[in-house]
Design a binder for these strands. Structure first.
Ligand SMILES: [Mn+2]
Ligand SMILES: [Mn+2]
Ligand SMILES: [Mn+2]
Ligand SMILES: [Mn+2]
Lengths: 217, 217
DNA sequence: AATTAAATTTAGACAAATCTAAAAATTGAT
DNA sequence: ATCAATTTTTAGATTTGTCTAAATTTAATT
């Protein structure tokens, strides 16, 4: 598989093409910052190779084989992100760009040994689950902070938006994965929250709260 | 720079194009397992970009800029090889293939941090020197085992041939970098050597001896 | 059901990197 | 100095992945 093919599979997976849902040409084009006509060409090619289901004008979805390949690339991406943070002191906003390159390195032994070096991590620096070697996916039981009821508390386990500006904002405000958060008050007017975290209590906007995942239990 | 351009620069460097010498189209084509006509095309392109000196029919050599780029790729290649051996338990015959891919990853921070993680190694697993960040090259004072006089001894510090079969042969015979070797006897008939190494003494062919580097001092 | 708008595909082009076959330049041997 | 062999370059084609513009299909609206 070429780098481009791998990127298409990964994108389609992230758009939800793993299950039934059929993903539109335009959605893929937008996500990949390319043109719909290019997507059509690639869809035909990947279908030819048995990686996609594709019927003209009907959108695409991943075959079992395609899903397997997508998960393998996502596994590599996330393991490399862990490596960069844990072993090379990258910050969580720096890792994605480099992992986009590293995910295409071809060596099964490399990724197995990397997994071992990192002590078989289950989640990447953004809280996203790392698929196992055989493509098992362990999605965590989590909810958005914005959906928590008042006085409930939980541990921050992930971000929905993992853009560089959002991650840097969280760093600046000392909001990190692993922190325990308690919802003190919800403001009706703008849906902002007053929360308690690591001793301090302060206010965060709805936009922030709706991009932070919390594990309740 | 594209991956292909980087591979051309690296190959030209390894063929000696770093200094005055002008490297022939055919030599590059053979080394890269491609056709001379492809080399001509790329030579023109790289000259256009200021990375090569190139005059039709006169061969090519690296400009200062081209040399710098080549050394940067070689630095990455060798650092990754050290990483694979030191951190991921690869054997020295397995690393080259993977490093061929990893050397093209673009991130200055990545390679600086990798260097640090590995404690700033000076040599790769095959005994080849790792260029510094600013392209300094520290070639070691070494000679071929086959050129050592009788009863001289030295430490094995590198291999001339780093093909998989040769490296595996050395492993099988417990010949490793760092071992101290003493020449006991040279056979006139076939130029084979009797050597002492790590207690044992045994015989090795001229072909082996002429592909092992030894540091005498 | 007909018409319009939007999404999708097709047709044709292009850049990068390669190839084959033919032409041109260089080398080196008489 | 000439000629033949070798090396190198050119010309034209191919593959991959992309693009634009035009045609087609589907979806939405009257
Ligand atoms: Mn990422
Ligand atoms: Mn991530
Ligand atoms: Mn190597
Ligand atoms: Mn090496």
């Amino acid at each position: 598989m070429t780098r481009s093919e791998e990127n298409y599979l990964k994108t389609i997976f992230h758009l939800g093409g793993g299950r039934d849902a059929s993903i539109t040409t335009n959605a893929i084009a937008e996500q990949m910052e390319t043109k719909p006509s290019s997507v059509t060409d690639m869809a035909r090619k990947l279908a030819e190779k048995g990686l996609l289901h594709y019927k003209k004008y009907q959108g695409v979805s991943l075959t079992d084989l395609g899903t397997k390949k997508a998960l393998s690339i996502i596994r590599k991406h996330r393991l490399w992100e862990v490596f960069l943070v844990e072993k090379l002191d990258f910050t969580w906003d720096e890792v994605h760009e480099v992992a986009e390159q590293l995910e295409h390195i071809k060596s099964e032994k490399l990724i197995d040994k990397l997994d071992e070096l990192l002590d078989f991590p289950k989640y990447d620096p953004h809280g996203d689950p790392i698929p196992t070697k055989d493509g098992k996916f362990m999605e965590r039981d989590k909810k958005l902070l914005s959906e928590m009821p008042i006085s409930a508390s939980g541990v921050c386990v992930g971000v929905k938006d993992s853009s560089v500006p959002f991650l840097k904002f969280l760093d600046k405000n000392k909001i990190a994965l692993g922190n325990t958060i308690k919802v003190l008050e919800k403001e009706d007017f703008d849906q902002s929250l007053r929360i308690q975290m690591e001793g301090k209590d302060f206010r965060i906007s709805h936009q922030i709260a709706s991009n932070l995942y919390v594990k309740t239990e």
